[in-house]
Design a protein around this nucleic acid. Structure first.
Lengths: 248, 248
DNA sequence: TTATTAAAGTTGTTCCTACAAGTCTGTTCC
DNA sequence: GGAACAGACTTGTAGGAACAACTTTAATAA
């Protein structure tokens, strides 16, 4: 990423520490270098490194204890949203996720299917990626991902790996197509499996499933992708209360 | 709250500004006082007031633009979790929420129903509050709230208002019983309505509903309450991407 | 060998200062 | 009247410093 030079120092520090964390350089539970040490390593002030560390705490990767130091909590916080990688979550839990690309279709302007999408996606051709996700061989969810076709030029089946960490749609959109997003809204509702979804997932028609509809936006507010997921099981979240309280 | 003296200055500023915001002193869309003005009003430094404002931004209440100032986005960010008040959301949307207290029961140690609760709630008597929530007269959800009985001494039906803002369980637990919590985990799954829930909500048995199970914790990690919600419709979230990017 | 205490180390809070970068307002000129 | 520019104002980033509060470590005494 050539643009790292334009990022503030605390942002670069945040990313670098996060990379170290995710690469295993800091193990879960182990104490991280102190604020002073990190400030020295990055050549920045303690105030600036604290901003980066504060973000890591807020994002759930590390915990801090006054007088004791920072420890790694997790390499990937557990929240089951469209912005967290299902692939990574399954791999971390010792399962084997796989993906089957069911279809890759460009929906032209005026296509009937466009009518069901958010309005922002109805003004231009849209790429629809339909995939069946499975865990340890057992189908778990049908995922339809819609992206403005202009953001995924020359997309083909080879762009959608079916094994390993690269099968994550977040990683595909980010690395292969260079897309970035910073916010999303998600809607979860009960869904009675119709014949098509039931056949894909391997449940009987009429089964109760969950439907997750998620719209992700770029910093400038433009829509990056829309995802429609039909899944068995449940989704889980870690939440923090608004109007927080201080540690006793 | 007598303990405000022990909170850091940035925390007090955060709460005061949030109170002003929620009380309507700052209207949605209007520009708030500048950092310098607020620092002066609170008698603290610009750095400290920025910490409070930063929290308000992160929590979704205000937005800031360099050179332009801070504006109020919302008086209550829209996310449909057990930590956000359904009552407040409905009132804000111009609907009339009401609540019927179905039962208020103390489950003693060893009670069969305790077996289905989180382990932390199985070690002591638990208060179970069952309520039916409705919007504009239409039943929407059945809510079972479980709290260690010792945290709700002398609880009675009079403690659970059925109209207005005070019907919010978050407000009841907070104000009437002085409970505080700072984190929660929530799990959403599909639920096929059994006869009891179906009768309460007014749907046919076998209907697909959503089940929200939520466990809230205090700062010290102890369990404050557990909530089990069966609801029609959907839940929605606002999410921010982890590993954020800087504004262009 | 164990317990206590002091010192050292670490995070948390707060302040002041300086400057960068963006926005807004007012004035001047065409 | 509109455009351009300058100045003022505002937020954003960064550093250094000081001290509070908590934890850890080492030394000393019993």
């Amino acid at each position: 990423m050539i643009e790292t030079e334009s990022k503030p120092k605390y942002e670069k520090a945040y990313r670098t520490i996060l990379d170290r964390l995710k690469s295993g350089r800091y193990q879960i539970g182990m104490r991280m270098p102190t604020e002073g040490e990190l400030a020295g390593q990055f050549g920045i002030s303690r105030v600036t490194i604290r901003r980066a560390l504060d973000m890591l705490v807020k994002d759930g990767y590390v915990e801090s204890r006054q007088g004791s130091g920072y420890r790694v909590l997790t390499l990937s916080p557990a929240s089951d949203t469209c912005l967290t990688s299902f692939t990574d979550a399954m791999l971390r839990a010792g399962h084997e996720p796989t993906t089957r690309l069911v279809s890759l279709t460009t929906l032209p302007l005026g296509a009937k299917d466009l009518a069901l999408l958010p309005p922002d996606l109805q003004r231009e051709p849209v790429m629809r990626v339909t995939r069946l996700r499975a865990v340890d061989g057992v189908p778990r969810m049908v995922v339809n991902t819609f992206v403005p076709a202009r953001l995924m030029p020359d997309a083909g089946p080879a762009d959608f790996p079916e094994k390993g960490t690269d099968q994550s749609i977040l990683r595909i959109l980010g690395r292969r197509f260079g897309l970035e997003w910073s916010a999303a809204c998600e809607d979860i509702s009960p869904f009675v499996a119709d014949a098509a979804v039931a056949a894909l997932i391997g449940v009987s028609s009429g089964s109760a499933l969950l439907r997750q509809a998620c719209t992700a936006f770029a910093e400038d507010g433009s829509l990056v992708f829309y995802e429609d997921v039909y899944r068995t099981g449940s989704v889980s979240f870690n939440l923090s209360r608004q109007g927080r309280s201080t540690k006793a």
